[in-house]
Nucleic acid binder design. Structure first.
Lengths: 268, 268
DNA sequence: TCTTGACTCTCCCCCTACGGGAGGCATTAT
DNA sequence: ATAATGCCTCCCGTAGGGGGAGAGTCAAGA
């Protein structure tokens, strides 16, 4: 016969936990003094306490332990309980892994934006863009409508996205109202979805400039790029591209002053 | 200005949750009617609500969200919060994966025991045991002392165990008191630890019998095996082996009537 | 026998992130 | 005027105990 304190030291379970297990009926003392209310534990209870502690360490709930102990007295009978516990744990792990992946992608994109900020000189440059696999939703309307296209791609092909979203502009000049544009996203793998064109976008040579600030000031950067193109005497090719290196984040809308948009005007 | 119900429908957060977030100070209505206590939400609050919902879906606690919103207004500032969250999630996943692995090993060993029960005919057979890598603790004493040896191996090399524990008996005859025995466990990989001998155990040809029941009745099965050996005129070789196919489980002690022990008497 | 110190008892509040419900006003539609 | 919603606050519940208050108990020393 041990008092609760002794039994606690023997089993490694806290006194509070022992009282709690008594209340829940999964680990009863062998006798309780009627006058004092003192709990007394038998040495034989140590075995059961070990089992309870073990099951708790395997993350069984107290209710599960109760059910399990009521029905089983060896592992063979508890097999399906163990299996169920394993399944719920695995579901839990999958959920958390999904969150971790989201966090990783947020962190990675943020760090990439920092790199761009540090490395980009925000000056006009000529460069080559390799061909890439992309998914696009072509539409007519105003610039702000492209969000719907990105949303559609995200919903249908979100798993395969592999890069910054961008727009293709098929109009020769800027149109506020009835622009012919395509909301696009680079893809890691080919996939199909209704209303979305998945295809290889050809490589180009282009004049590019990273614009920093809100979208409605992007016109100024276009002027600079077009002036450069004219000065150099290049001939431009459609469609032109606008890559959203950093826009509203996945959590915060962020400060538009820090948005980064790369204008790419293809040349022959 | 929206009432709480409208705002709930807009944001997808429950009315209860909105009141809770108000109380916790992470999402305050833009005005509260002094008389009626009605909360009124601005359209601008939708953005903040979206952020809160997003952070909750990433499993941030309300307190973390509060700290995060107090310090950051874009993802760049929140990077270390995200990183911390990711780290705790990963620790969580590791813990659960450890539990899943434990459960898997319990389930696997239990299913294996079932297979043995189903397939073994509990008759004497002659068979070959291939060589195996093992860890052993040699000792003198009584049979029941071998538990200490298994415990030591489990503590030091638990990760590398790959099979049923067994004993090697170096005495020609049965000794209750001062037996020369070695508590052994098959190993998946070589490893070292003080007081443990890790080595390759040679292959043998042996006469074997699976004994079912508590250890203290194992003598009867020995009699049968030795009678068989004598009848066949085999010459035995030391050490003999006793493999604990099923003993006290990792959770329950189990019913000794179902314990399975294989006696292996090596022959020349 | 008395005291003292170490234990133990029950009871209550605390934690998360809300959900459920009771009882009581406010607003709006008929 | 009345009924139907909608909203308010307040209270209780969750899982597994931790922390502590106030009171009773046990064993040993003086």
């Amino acid at each position: 016969m041990h008092t609760i304190g002794e039994f606690s030291r023997i089993t490694g379970l806290s006194v509070k936990a022992l009282r709690f297990y008594h209340e829940k009926g999964i680990l009863e003392p062998c006798s309780v003094d009627e006058d004092s209310g003192y709990r007394y534990y038998d040495t034989r209870s140590v075995e059961r306490a070990r089992v309870v502690a073990r099951l708790r360490s395997l993350d069984f709930t107290v209710q599960e332990i109760k059910d399990l102990l009521a029905q089983c007295d060896d592992e063979s009978g508890a097999l399906e309980f163990l299996q169920r516990r394993k399944n719920t744990l695995e579901a839990d792990i999958r959920r958390r892994r999904g969150i971790v992946r989201e966090l990783e992608s947020i962190i990675a994109s943020e760090e990439e934006a920092r790199n761009i900020m540090r490395e980009s000189k925000f000056e006009i440059e000529e460069k080559s863009i390799p061909s890439m696999l992309m998914a696009g939703v072509r539409m007519r309307g105003r610039y702000s409508d492209c969000g719907k296209g990105f949303a559609l791609i995200g919903r249908k092909l979100g798993r395969h996205i592999g890069g910054h979203p961008f727009n293709l502009y098929y109009d020769g000049e800027f149109r506020e109202e009835d622009a012919d544009l395509e909301a696009c996203v680079p893809m890691k793998r080919a996939a199909e979805a209704e209303g979305i064109s998945v295809r290889e976008l050809p490589a180009i040579r282009c004049v590019a400039l990273v614009h920093r600030g809100p979208y409605d000031t992007v016109g100024r950067s276009y002027e600079r790029v077009l002036a450069y193109v004219k000065e150099k005497g290049y001939k431009t090719v459609l469609p032109s591209r606008e890559v959203y290196l950093k826009g509203p984040g996945m959590i915060f809308r962020g400060n538009p002053k820090n948005y980064l948009t790369e204008i790419q005007i293809p040349i022959e």
